[in-house]
Nucleic acid binder design. Structure first.
Lengths: 93, 93
DNA sequence: TAATTTGGTTTATAAAATAAACCGCTTTAT
DNA sequence: ATAAAGCGGTTTATTTTATAAACCAAATTA
């Protein structure tokens, strides 16, 4: 049995990737609301996804407030697709 | 976003349930081979699934050797189906 | 009968998820 | 102007989980 990419097999990271796959870009606040996660948890998981090269995290400003924008990278897309593929074996979808 | 049943959202437990969903009954050794897991890990995860009422674990004998047989319960089936359903939202399958 | 293997369980360790505390900057109210 | 409250996060600590390592009893093999 193929193993499920442990980086994606986490509720919150999967949810984040799921959102980003459909949206081209999303900021921290939007992700926190959409995934109903705490800021602390989200911050940690975004770091892990970024460290893996699955997403980019850009810290900028919107007016004078900070704004952190995330995007999925090609590698992230590929990993997500592979993950879904592996899951099909488990769930036989 | 609905949460993924944490009892099923674990690589090994999901693999075990996946096997049991298709097979009516399976013993410890078969599960260990099919999931390519260590006996220790498998033992622990079977206990958790059993404690949740998702599977039954019956310790008996085959000849004079012990044989531990597992089956998925109706509750287990329901939970698995619900889990798959929730996953569809994440993955949009 | 002494190893070895089989079928597991229990216990210890490593890794992950989550929450709690905190920090700097802004805005609002006084 | 200044204190207090809120926003957007990060860091650190705690709890849970997953995994591996060590172990055990019964059966088999040498």
């Amino acid at each position: 049995m193929k193993e499920l990419d442990p980086l994606l097999h986490s509720q919150l990271r999967l949810a984040v990737m799921s959102v980003l796959m459909n949206v081209e870009e999303a900021d921290f606040v939007y992700l926190r609301e959409k995934t109903e996660s705490t800021a602390g948890n989200l911050s940690v998981q975004l770091d892990k996804l970024a460290a893996a090269g699955y997403i980019t995290v850009e810290k900028g400003f919107s007016g004078r407030k900070t704004r952190t924008v995330c995007r999925v990278t090609p590698a992230g897309r590929a990993a997500f697709v592979a993950y879904v593929d592996t899951l099909r074996e488990y769930l036989n979808l």
